[in-house]
């Protein structure tokens, strides 16, 4: 058992290093977001009160919103508040931002996970199938399909889904979100069409990455060694190829999750889903800066955490990364 200790130690050191870089990234990101949004033109107080407001009224509102204190103080209280879960009050709706975001997150997060699961479930078999039949009809067919999957705009695809499955077949509702209080099944049911529309292009990209990563691995010496042991071509692919091909695939999965979390705004519009994307869109139009700041920061946080998880997954897949520090 003497062997496990240095290995554990290496893994722990690796995780600590990644964690440190996670906190540094968060600090830098929060500063950048704050500065960028502060320099954007438009004063929320005057925007809320309209063009004819008295300067005294504007000043009073500014004081009430906490806009009159020095910028660095506002940054610190913003960051401090976020750390304790308090994102402040929305300028427009006068409700806690935390509540607004939480409600939206309950739609966007399950949707992103749902779409990612679908895309992975489609992409893995498709990529493996194509790679194991390189240059044959099956490969060409799958690659053609992925080409199409990337090319089709997903809002159009979403509308087609609505047309077929909601309007003609009436299997799903055409839009809106049932809410989780009616049960898991009802919630998932109303997210299915949006998840499929989001998953399609992602699955197509992931399948191509999976295929090319596997093809790279197939040329490696250890694949020939495995054949010389008596493994069939298929066994070699599954037992020795797949895990070695996972690194580039994990990278793409990480990127896709971050994208799905916020990038679903068009799909949210098509299906009238109360998600994060729409919240950002509405807040920007209303100059509700504090909501914009908070949502953007939350998304950055999600991206960084996902990257951290991907880094840990790399180390779990590849023992060489654990010992290299």
């Amino acid at each position: 058992m003497a062997r496990t200790r240095p290995n554990l130690c290496a893994m722990l050191r690796y995780s600590l290093k990644r964690l440190l870089s996670l906190f540094i990234s968060l600090a830098i990101a929060s500063l950048v977001i704050f500065v960028v949004i502060e320099v954007a033109p438009g004063d929320p107080a005057s925007f809320m009160l309209g063009l004819n407001a008295q300067p005294e009224t504007v000043a009073a509102l500014r004081a009430e919103l906490g806009l009159d204190v020095p910028k660095w103080q506002r940054y610190l209280s913003w960051v401090g508040g976020m750390a304790s879960g308090d994102f402040g009050m929305s300028y427009t709706y006068r409700t806690p931002v935390t509540e607004m975001i939480a409600a939206r997150l309950w739609v966007s997060l399950p949707l992103a996970l749902y779409a990612l699961t679908l895309s992975t479930l489609i992409a893995f078999p498709a990529g493996i199938f194509a790679a194991s039949r390189r240059g044959q009809a099956g490969d060409i067919g799958v690659m053609g399909a992925t080409q199409l999957g990337i090319a089709i705009p997903n809002f159009w695809f979403a509308m087609m889904l609505v047309l077929v499955f909601a309007i003609n077949l009436r299997w799903f509702s055409a839009g809106g979100f049932a809410g989780w209080d009616k049960g898991l099944w009802a919630g998932l049911h109303s997210l299915t069409l949006p998840a499929i529309s989001l998953a399609l292009p992602q699955a197509a990209i992931l399948a191509r990455v999976m295929r090319s990563a596997l093809l790279d691995v197939l040329g490696e010496d250890y694949m020939r060694t495995a054949r010389a042991k008596g493994l069939s071509a298929r066994q070699t692919l599954w037992r020795h190829g797949l895990r070695n091909a996972l690194i580039p695939v994990l990278t793409i999965i990480g990127l896709q999750f971050s994208f799905l979390l916020a990038g679903g705004i068009i799909i949210e519009q098509v299906f009238y889903l109360p998600g994060l994307g729409r919240l950002v869109f509405q807040s920007i139009s209303a100059r509700d800066l504090i909501v914009v700041e908070s949502v953007v920061m939350l998304l950055v946080f999600a991206v960084i955490v996902v990257n951290f998880a991907v880094d840990l997954a790399y180390a779990a897949v590849d023992p060489r990364l654990r010992s290299r520090t």
Binding site: D221, Y222, R224, T225, A228, H240, R243
Partner: peptide, 16 residues
């Protein structure tokens, strides 16, 4: 039939 190859550095699966 067993077979041994030239490049020991790459003949083994790095993740097993």
């Amino acid at each position: 039939i067993g077979m041994v190859f030239q490049e020991p550095m790459t003949a083994l699966n790095p993740v097993q």
